[in-house]
Amino acid sequence: MLCQECQKRPATVMVRRTVNNKTTRVHLCEYCAREKGELNFMDSFAGPEFSLHKLFASLLDSDAEVKQLKLDPTAGLLKCPQCGLTYNEFKGSGRLGCASCYKTYRQQLEPLLGRLHGRIEHCGKVPQRAGRSLRLKQELGELKEALNRAVEREEFEKAAVLRDKIRDMEKTIDV
């Protein structure tokens, strides 16, 4: 079967067209299908980098930014003390330069992370080493809860043991 559009190339694509609630089937070659915009779905699916840049532009040049700069006119002068990344460099590339950048640009990052991910708090895997203090803090929280329960139930011996444990633990981490 030949392409119903050009009548030259073999038809390889079947296209459904709905006009006035009537669906018709058209057989086209790939070339004509593309020309007719029937195969242009790739255009709308650029990679995450692309959408990120658009997002930055819309977010950082928005009213929100203007307001933020009015509240804190020094934001435009921010520079990461660790790696030297400036606000403009961050804005231009959308990339951070080091872990400290997350502290330096916290105010700018949080709305961005919110727009990208919907949420801004990590709840996934915690690494053994770097997450050690987080793990200890979680444990400490649990111990303190246990202590409160023990005191409420007037289990004083148990409470004393827990209190010692908490004291020891607090020495090992600087809270």
Binding site: R95, Y102, E121
Partner: peptide
């Protein structure tokens, strides 16, 4: 502790 693993790109 808040942001998890820190990466170069916020994505």
């Amino acid at each position: 502790e808040t942001y998890g693993y820190l990466t170069c790109c916020p994505t």
